[in-house]
Simulated scan of single mutants.
Amino acid sequence: MSATTSDAFTVITDLDAFPQHLKNGVVAIGNFDGVHCGHRAVLGAALEKGAELGAPVYVMTFEPHPRSVFNPDRPVFRLSPLEQKCDILRACGLNGSLVLPFTREFAGVEADDFVRDILISRLEIVHAVTGYDFHFGRARAGTPDFLRQSGAQNGFGVTIVEPENDEGRDVISSSRIRAALADGDMSLANGLLGYRWFIDATVRHGDKRGRDLGYPTANLALAEECPLKHGIYAVKIRLGDRLLGGVASYGRRPTFDNGAPLLEVHIFDFKEDLYDRELRVHLVSYLRGEEKFDSVDALIVQMDRDSEEARAALGSMQPLSELDVILLNDQR
């Protein structure tokens, strides 16, 4: 794939196929994993500059995550894999995303060459926007100050966005969100994201034990490196053009087999076959930790309580932002 367009949002994976309609544009550069509130300060600055200049606005991002390239034995958990990230960027009102393959060779490109060969020759940018901590090029020589100087020398503008803090004055970061997911703190994770964190996965066949318990589930395998705390969650499920409520368990099922971690989603008042269909599951709140029960009857009693609590949590949920509303109602 080199370039695809959907709803006026273009995804480009080949510099040689960079479309003419995005040239002379404003580019926001960064990894943007999660497209959290800090990232959206960068995107907001880019959109504002684009409106001022009458120019298209797109992001330049990198795949795979640089940390996974330099530490392949410790791959970083992606808050938003590429397809999800592009969905979020599209919902933010951008015109496209340029996805550059990140390799050790790419990391070794001189900062001057990056500016000359990519930003100027290939993209013909009029303005670049980055966060305060973005570096590029060999030995990370492409600092924010370097980019400013390059812009002044080569005729393009540069905006460097300062860190975005939460209400506690702590810097918003993807690593903080990963840590919050590991703690089961969905309130913090979703607050830093500005939307309900979601997972896309295909429903797989399971042992059908949920049916016998009166709680049929859609079984979803998450990435091995997923740090999400094992436990029970209130969830919203996107299925086609429908937004449904449910309760989900993520863990090893200690009452039964203590197997590989699995997300088991029970959709309220739902009886359709979901095998091999893709679901988008938004995690709304964490209800309790995973437990081992002495009997199936005791487990069912607790599942009844979990369902009541999940319904209450979903009934009282409020939108976190305009982006949260868009993503919850996205019917693509």
Rank of each mutant, 00 (worst) to 15 (best):
T143Q: 10
W197M: 03
G191T: 08
Y132T: 09
E225V: 14
M317Y: 12
E48K: 14
K292Q: 11
R67Q: 13
Q20M: 13
S321Y: 02
E164I: 12
L287I: 14
T4N: 10
D306V: 07
R169S: 15
G157N: 06
K85G: 10
E225R: 12
V35A: 04
L98M: 07
V265P: 08
C226I: 07
G245D: 15
H135N: 06
I12L: 03
L53I: 00
V325I: 15
Y286W: 10
P319V: 06
V126W: 05
D87V: 14
A182P: 04
G259M: 03
A223Q: 08
N258Y: 08
G245M: 08
I88F: 06
N154G: 06
A51M: 15
N258W: 04
P163R: 03
V59Y: 03
A310N: 03
S321N: 04
F106T: 09
D166M: 12
L15Y: 04
S175F: 03
G131K: 04
P216Q: 05
V35H: 01
T4M: 11
E167H: 14
F32P: 01
V235P: 07
E105S: 15
F156E: 02
V325L: 14
P254V: 08
Q84N: 09
E278R: 15
T61S: 06
F70Q: 09
A313I: 03
S97M: 11
T255D: 01
A139L: 14
D200V: 04
R204P: 02
P56K: 00
R196G: 05
V129A: 00
L94V: 03
I125T: 12
T13R: 15
I160N: 00
L79H: 06
G54S: 01
D112E: 13
K271Q: 14
G246N: 05
G259P: 01
P101D: 08
V158Y: 01
R280N: 06
K85I: 06
P101F: 08
S175R: 11
G151M: 00
L213I: 07
Y286M: 03
V235G: 07
R211C: 09
K23I: 05
G151D: 00
L53T: 00
P261Q: 05
A41K: 10
I12A: 03
E322W: 10
F106E: 10
R104I: 11
A189N: 11
R311L: 10
F293G: 02
T202P: 11
G93K: 10
V301R: 14
G38P: 01
L323G: 05
V247P: 03
N95M: 06
A141M: 12
R169G: 12
A218M: 04
A46Y: 00
M317R: 13
E291L: 15
H266P: 02
T5A: 05
A107V: 03
P81A: 04
K292V: 04
D297L: 12
D7Y: 12
E272M: 03
S249Y: 13
R90T: 02
E124D: 14
M317N: 06
G259I: 02
